[in-house]
Amino acid sequence: MPVRSSGFVRQGWPLAVASFATLLAGAAQAAEQKHGESGEGASFPPFDPAHFASNLFWLAITFAALYWLMSKVALPRIGEILEERANTIGRDLDQAAEMQAKAEDMAQAYEKALAEARKNAQGIAQTARDTGAKASDAQRHATEAELAAKLAQAEATIAKTKTEAMGNVRGLGGDVAIAIVTKLTGQAPTASEASEAVDQALSRG
């Protein structure tokens, strides 16, 4: 509750001065009257008008000073202090709430990241497993194909060698037939006659 310099503070001065001046004048009059009556010495001091003027005068000065000091210096300052304290406490509370919210957000984000990472890890493991299986399959297929190719090649080589060998056998047969005919008849057939005979014999037999 801060104290702002209000309308009353400004209007209050003439009012206070006026009321004190009125009282002061009244007191002075009362003192004079009393003097006029007679010097009735030992009266009750609080009721002795002789001191009224002095009391009023000094009350006006001291109370005005007090009012001025309170309204201009002390109360606005204390109002500021209290307001500042309330603001500080409010700000600190706000900050704490904000921090808490942030911490909760962070915890949530962490949980989410953790779950995602777990899911990712599973995915990666699955992929790795799949890739591994695929790679080993491919390798196996490649090796099998290579082996099949080598087998086919080997078979072809064998067939070729066999054909060649058979060719050689025929050639050899012709030569043998010439030699036999020459030995038997003493006359050498031509190569073409020999090979023709061999062919006839082969197809027969």
């Binding site: 002789a50 001191h51 000094w58 001291t62 000091l69 309170m70 002390a74 300052r77």
Partner: peptide, 26 residues
């Protein structure tokens, strides 16, 4: 001006009162 405005023991204690209050508050 014929007014008795003497600084008395009352005045002294008014000043003391003002001073004490001001000291505490200011």
């Amino acid at each position: 001006f014929g007014l008795n405005l003497s600084f008395t023991n009352t005045s002294l204690w008014m000043v003391i009162v003002t001073a004490v209050v001001s000291a505490i508050m200011i």
